[in-house]
Write a protein that binds this DNA or RNA. Structure first.
Lengths: 211, 211
DNA sequence: CTGGTTCTAGCACGACCGTGCGAACTACGA
DNA sequence: TCGTAGTTCGCACGGTCGTGCTAGAACCAG
């Protein structure tokens, strides 16, 4: 069972690995719309045109399927939000770029049900268990990253000294979150634009030398 | 079957009506935690110590149970948020009071899973059907009310002329929404306080003569 | 006491759930 | 060529789901 592969190269993927990835891909799409709790092995099997056992064998329990789906969505978030956002220079520019990357990822419809984590967060915020904990960790990490950039910006004199970085991040994340929910609910991307405007103005207000 | 009651007075409730209300009460609590889709007739029956048929007979379909639960939660929202908020004078005071009533209702834990509508909104934002439509209506009505107060405030000169009422409401509702999700996720009421602070500062900034 | 309405329980149904097991098929190293 | 490991399938299980039907209990009007 332990990893006995010496070579981590782009190595040819076996059939099993390709199927595994395909299952997770479908699972992410489904869960972003209907929730991680509504994920069903039979449903996934039908969607993929394979047998229920064929799906089940890859995870050996429903909970593992859910956890792996969550992890796979985390990788998408890293690729679609973190990676582009982190290209900006540390400090204010990066803080803004991360918010914009988040908004763009919502607007592009990377997941058909909007931000995967917003969906799962709302679903599991009041339900304790490993999924709740994983989501809380991810959320904490994301906010922590933003806060760190805010502090960097403040130390660089890009943000006014009186600004509380934690509160600022809260106030930046709030319109992004709401933009996600409302744009999906009303199938109207203009809500993303409202979120973008709110972020821009909040940052301008917190910045020194408000242009 | 048609309503043949002449007297709509506080009339003594029959056993059936009391049971009906008790079911909806439990359903609201359950759904605020686990979601409206996870509501289960058998689960409700167990929770209430009655038979499955005893629950089912009151609604005759699961969808009606869900819709009635949603309506019952709407009444709670009216009683716990709208009613106290509307006591304030129209305009800026009422806008602020409505936000504060919303925050207070979250903080008091009126529903064990946080704001019922935040939960159901996230659950059904991407799923079309009558529940989605009902939730979208309710959300639109709530924002509409806030926007109306914002316009009243602006006409009364309480808000700066340059403020866009729709955008302002978006920026007020966002921290409230995020406060709900994060306070439940982290079981930490300090997030409600962050939301309160965000609302207060945003209103102060939009108001004329910023004290 | 009687008869009707209202409410709840019991039971059965088909469907789908998560999970386990063994058989078939595939691919590849010896 | 054979054997072994990896992958998928068919099938079965106990359980819960939503939904009907029927019988009885509780209540109330006459």
């Amino acid at each position: 069972m332990e990893e006995r592969r010496a070579e981590e190269q782009p190595r040819r993927r076996s059939d099993g690995e390709r199927t595994h990835a395909a299952i997770l891909d479908t699972a992410m799409r489904l869960a972003s719309v209907e929730g991680l709790g509504s994920l069903t092995i039979g449903r996934l099997a039908k969607e993929l045109g394979v047998s229920k056992s064929g799906v089940f064998a890859h995870f050996r329990s429903k909970e593992r399927l859910q956890l792996e789906t969550l992890a796979a969505a985390g990788e998408v978030f890293e690729r679609e939000v973190l990676e582009p956002g982190l290209k900006a220079a540390p400090g204010l520019a990066r803080l803004q770029a991360l918010c914009e990357a988040h908004l763009s990822y919502i607007q592009r419809g990377v997941f058909p049900g909007g931000c995967f984590f917003a969906q799962v967060l709302a679903e599991y915020d009041a339900v304790s268990g490993p999924i709740h904990d994983e989501v809380a960790d991810g959320q904490g990490g994301w906010f922590g990253l933003l806060e760190q950039e805010a502090r960097t910006a403040q130390q660089a004199g890009e943000l006014a000294a009186g600004v509380d970085p934690v509160q600022l991040v809260f106030e930046l994340a709030a319109p992004v979150e709401l933009a996600n929910y409302l744009s999906v609910l009303n199938r109207d991307p203009r809500f993303v634009e409202r979120g973008r405007r709110a972020v821009r103005e909040r940052l301008a207000q917190a910045a020194t030398s408000p242009a």
